[in-house]
Simulated scan of single mutants.
Amino acid sequence: MSAPSIGPQALRLFRYASARGDWSVRSACEQLDTTVDEIEHARGQLIDLGLLVESADDGPTAKATAPEAALLRLLTAEEEATVRLADRIRRTRERIDAMREVFLPLHVARSGTLGDEVITGADRIARVLGDIADIATSEILSMHPGPVRPPEVLAEGLRRDVQVLERGVTMRSIHLRPMTRIVHSMKHLQELRSAGAQVRIADIVPFRFILVDRVQALVPALHTDAANAMMVLRGEAVTALLVRVFEMCWASSVPLDESGAGEESGLTSQQLGVLRLMSTGRKDESIAREIGVSVRTLRRVMADLMAQLGVESRFQAGVRAARTGLLD
């Protein structure tokens, strides 16, 4: 609501009406040397402000009131309007929650095939993320592998996450360690944590997903040929499995500001993660994608790792790791 304004003509009329209890529009025009339209406009401004009060006995003139009383009436009216608005918002949210409880199970039952739920294109995926965030009422769990995203993408995600957190929704997220090595991404994580989210860092994250209220999730559509395609999953059977995966990754990750694992062995947590992936026979490209770095960076990490282990080949590194218990 915009603040009411008062013009110079209205001020002149207020002074005139305050000095005379029986004024009329005609007498005001004569005394103030102005037109009927100007007087009517000024009269309307003063009535809106409560400085003139109409009554059935006064006819078209209206009586001047004390400014203090008018201001108090304005404040009281604004407070009452705020209370009414808050009540409407509360009742609207109650209706939305009730509709959600009724219609979400129906939507889950209708969405029996996964093919209809595949989402492609960065813009469409962003819209679906926004929709999912909007319906969250209690909890969002998320895991974020892959390369570090550009500042503008992280900023948009942070804006959406802060709005969710301000509604009282709990948020836990797991991110790859490279996020902590770049200024803009580390700042993003710190701001996310400051907004109320619980943030952890891992060396390996199996796949990206966002799980809302343990009933709806956005996961990679690995069964399609489309690049970066995502898929919406619903239903307790699937989401319970995602919760189990998340909790296992959460338990093996560390809070944002804590040092990594591997201190006793002299290896960094990243080196331990690479060592474990190497032991599974994964190729360099696959390992690099898994930990969110380039192949060139990965090979530098692997060279440092083998130098610290005192070996010259991946096979020897695996044998040394097994003998020393690094893979336990």
Rank of each mutant, 00 (worst) to 15 (best):
E38Q: 14
F209P: 02
R200F: 04
T34S: 01
L51Y: 04
R20S: 01
G115N: 03
A221M: 02
A109E: 14
A155K: 13
Q9A: 11
L46K: 03
D123R: 09
R181F: 10
W23C: 00
G44I: 07
V153H: 15
A122T: 12
S27R: 07
L52R: 12
R15G: 03
L154P: 04
S259F: 09
L277C: 04
I174F: 06
S253P: 08
R159D: 09
A261V: 10
V245T: 12
G146H: 04
A155T: 13
T82Q: 15
M231W: 09
G325Q: 01
S313M: 06
M1K: 12
E38C: 11
R296E: 12
R149P: 10
M302V: 12
Q9D: 10
V148S: 05
A303I: 02
D33T: 01
T82W: 14
A3P: 13
W23S: 00
L176M: 04
T61L: 15
P178K: 13
V199I: 04
A322K: 09
E258I: 01
A109K: 13
V183A: 15
A321V: 01
R20I: 00
G235I: 01
Q198E: 14
A126E: 11
A227N: 13
G59P: 09
V245W: 14
L106N: 03
I125E: 12
A64C: 00
S269A: 09
T120E: 10
D328E: 14
C29L: 00
Q216I: 15
R43W: 06
S2D: 09
A202V: 03
L46P: 00
I291W: 06
V311T: 02
Q271L: 02
L85Y: 13
Q316E: 10
D58C: 08
E312D: 07
C29A: 00
V118Y: 07
F103G: 06
E264V: 07
F103A: 10
D87Q: 13
F103C: 07
E263H: 15
V162R: 04
G121I: 05
V238D: 09
L309M: 06
I125Q: 12
L165R: 05
M278W: 10
L71K: 13
D131K: 12
E38T: 15
L211W: 04
T82E: 14
T35R: 02
R26V: 01
V232C: 09
T280G: 01
Q271Y: 02
V53C: 06
D203G: 11
L305H: 06
T65Q: 06
T65C: 03
H175Y: 12
S173Y: 10
A42Q: 05
L158V: 00
V36Y: 14
D116V: 11
A217K: 03
I135N: 13
R296Q: 11
R234D: 07
L309E: 04
G292E: 03
Q316G: 02
S294F: 05
R15Q: 06
S252L: 15
D37N: 13
R43V: 02
G318E: 05
D304Y: 11
A136K: 05
D225C: 08
V245L: 14
S253F: 08
V36L: 15
M1D: 07
Q31F: 00
L74T: 07
L114V: 07
G281S: 03
V232G: 07
S5P: 01
D48Q: 12
E79W: 08
